[in-house]
Amino acid sequence: MRLAFMGSPDFAVPALRALHGAGHEIAAVYCQPPRPAGRGQKEQPCPVHRAALELGLPVRTPARLRKDEAEHAAFAALGLEAAVVAAYGLILPRTMLEAPRRGCLNIHASLLPRWRGAAPIQAAILAGDAESGITIMQMEEGLDTGPMLLKGTVPIGPRTTTPELHDALSAMGARLALEALDRSPPTLPQSAEGATYAPKLSKADAPLDWTLSAAALDRRVRALNPWPGTVFTLAGETIRVLAAEPTEGAGPPGTVLNEAALIACGEGALRLLRLQRPGRGPLPARDFLRGFPLPPGAVLG
């Protein structure tokens, strides 16, 4: 089948590889343009771009699409049966959505209509959902509102992290995308009832609010690492929390309760398990505390 693939981050790479490996003709791979990264701020291609080059596939990296009529025409001229989209990062205008004969299929990392939007994996963990999944959706102009073709579920355990859930959903998305193309299943309209929205995350989401319950803060640590991370401040230094666990304990929120990095929360306490200072490597709490103690009675910001 003659396809275009549209995606940018690591999440989308397994789907691209699966489509290529299954023998589909990928006429073009669309992804975000290279951007400065690293200490030297040299322009780096995104993961999908790198994978496409490795597979010998043609790559297009338009910076915008909505009003680029030349790009619309170039896409239509590809003569596609379908386009498969996974975390591309640009909104497709109607002319592009309607160009492939079977339209554009989106690999969305949630059980729609729950968690439409930019950060569905993190949102599911933050909310304490018991499961997440993949929805293969026929794209339309609304934000993740199109009719659904296939779904698959993945359980979220009490210690599940975003990287773990990301990888499970990424692999499932690749399998379901192949199945949707092979089977052409009937579509099921989404209901607006029960729809939720997962907004884009930013660095403003990183500071821990110790007035929340220990259970909620544990979910934040598991959901927001590796990015934007979860942090607190003490003695003018911002410390990153990479792992933690909720437990019993009581005191004014943010107060260090003992020498083993137990922190009082709005309800219960959070035991810090893995920490990192700026410019240093991550350490287990016991090793971190040898060089940067959290004295009992101190209040974390």
Score class of each variant (00 low, 15 high):
V48A: 05
G194W: 11
L55P: 01
G103E: 11
L53D: 04
L55A: 08
A28H: 00
I136G: 02
G279S: 09
P185T: 11
E25Q: 15
L201H: 01
G254V: 02
W227I: 01
L150Q: 13
G268Q: 05
E164S: 12
G279F: 01
A264R: 01
E54G: 03
Q276N: 03
G157M: 06
A73V: 05
D182M: 12
L55Q: 04
R222E: 00
P113R: 09
Q138W: 04
G251K: 06
G297Q: 04
K203I: 10
L53G: 15
K203R: 15
P147Q: 03
L65M: 12
S110F: 11
P33L: 04
N106L: 10
A99Y: 12
R274P: 01
L176R: 12
R290H: 05
C104R: 01
A192T: 12
G291D: 14
S184I: 01
L149D: 02
L294F: 15
T95E: 15
S132G: 10
R116F: 05
E54C: 04
L169D: 02
P226F: 10
S202Q: 09
E43F: 13
L257Y: 09
A215G: 13
A235F: 11
L181E: 09
P207S: 08
T238S: 09
E140I: 14
F11H: 00
A15E: 06
M6L: 15
A119R: 13
H108M: 13
A216C: 03
G268S: 06
S191W: 03
Q190T: 08
C31R: 03
R94W: 10
L257A: 10
R271I: 03
P163H: 12
D205N: 15
P226Y: 12
L201N: 00
M148Y: 00
P9H: 13
T187M: 12
A15H: 02
L126M: 13
R101A: 15
P45K: 07
P207Y: 09
N106F: 09
F75T: 01
E25G: 09
I156P: 00
S8N: 01
W115E: 01
L275T: 07
R290S: 11
L19A: 05
T162W: 08
F292M: 06
K200F: 10
F11D: 08
T196Q: 13
L78P: 08
V59A: 08
A223Y: 10
R2N: 14
L97E: 08
R94G: 02
P293Q: 09
C31Q: 02
R39K: 15
T238I: 07
E98R: 15
A243H: 04
R159W: 02
L178P: 10
E237G: 00
N225C: 10
P100N: 09
S202R: 13
G142D: 12
G117C: 05
A235R: 15
P34Q: 03
A177F: 11
G56P: 10
A118P: 06
F232G: 00
R286I: 07
P246I: 02
